[in-house]
Design a protein around this nucleic acid. Structure first.
Lengths: 182, 182
DNA sequence: ATCCTCATGTAAGCTGTTACATGATTCC
DNA sequence: GGAATCATGTAACAGCTTACATGAGGAT
């Protein structure tokens, strides 16, 4: 019924705390991004407004008159809807949008040395991502409420580690520049 | 400048043959899907029209008056643009849109037995996907023109195999139903 | 006869982005 | 005082989908 991104945002609110739109954006960037997508800030505010219209969340201005700030809380109905969605049969496929692989797929058009650079840069990026995931896993260790997120982060760690490994393999399969004999 | 999906479609036309919109859709479903996305049929026709307006492809009605059919051919300019794009630094991140992981992330909301079913179904789907990739790899074996696509398919094979493996691991971490002794 | 594949597109609408506008608070 | 972060939204637009309309050719 709702797009998955709406459930993702609703899902963030099931972890118990009241969150501002700004908080949602930070969480999304820090975790959702690894297995779904981090929506744009403006998108998050619109989804929160829609969830509120649907009665799945409520909101109130932040107390203490901290700046201009609104806090969102999931409703019982919202929790029900999220719970139903979690165990419904999954209709959508896993999608890997891999801009580096997309380019390598057209390797016949490019200079192998430049392709090598593109892949090496990707290797650096993927390693950076793996470190971020590791930090996130470490941060959730021992927190029982974060058990499922931790399982998912480990799942994604496996996938991105495979990406890093496959990058090496692909690098090894690129034609090497001929070396002049010594 | 152009969205990656436009380059993906343009890319399909760099493999040499004239293709109809229908052909593009079939190819996209059979290969592009594994590392990018298979755009909707109507989307493909619109992208082809745009590429033609930009002078990156040309089209002509199919000869032999086979039905109503239009064939697209990449232009020199199109080939240039695609080649430039391939070796430009990659700005976009790899995105894994994993609807099963997204649900498991909210595992605290659902019945563990139903979650198990969702993961088991995913395992079946992933294995099916792996078989498709293997067939695609086998089909491109020995074809020098398909060397880069084959490298990319092997890359994706590694990633989806990791997904299958991580699914097992996650299944092992789900709380098991208590078994009555004896 | 009927169904499947081939084949192309338009219209409407949702999803999601970037650019922009605005301003308070905190840290250095 | 200036930069970074906190904080919320609107407007415009791009990307992409679903539903729909239409019809030929081939297979059973």
């Amino acid at each position: 019924m709702l797009p998955n991104t709406a459930y993702a945002i609703l899902g963030l609110l099931t972890f118990g705390r009241e969150l501002s739109g700004y908080d949602v954006k930070k969480w999304a960037d820090a975790s959702l991004r690894f297995f779904w997508w981090a929506p744009a800030t403006s998108h998050i505010y619109r989804e929160l407004a829609r969830l509120e219209e649907l009665g799945l969340v409520t909101s109130r201005p932040a107390p203490d008159a901290e700046r201009r700030k609104r806090l969102y809380l999931i409703t019982d109905r919202g929790r029900e809807v999220a719970a139903e969605w979690v165990t419904e049969p999954v209709a959508e496929p896993v999608v890997v949008k891999h801009p580096v692989a997309l380019r390598l797929w057209l390797g016949h058009l490019g200079d192998p040395e430049q392709l090598r650079t593109v892949l090496e840069e990707h290797r650096v990026e993927t390693r950076r991502l793996l470190r971020e995931i590791d930090q996130s896993i470490a941060a959730s260790a021992g927190d029982a409420a974060m058990e499922y997120p931790r399982i998912v982060l480990e799942w994604m760690r496996t996938i991105y580690a495979a990406d890093a490994e496959a990058t090496e393999t692909a690098l090894g399969q690129l034609p090497r520049p001929a070396r002049r004999p010594g």
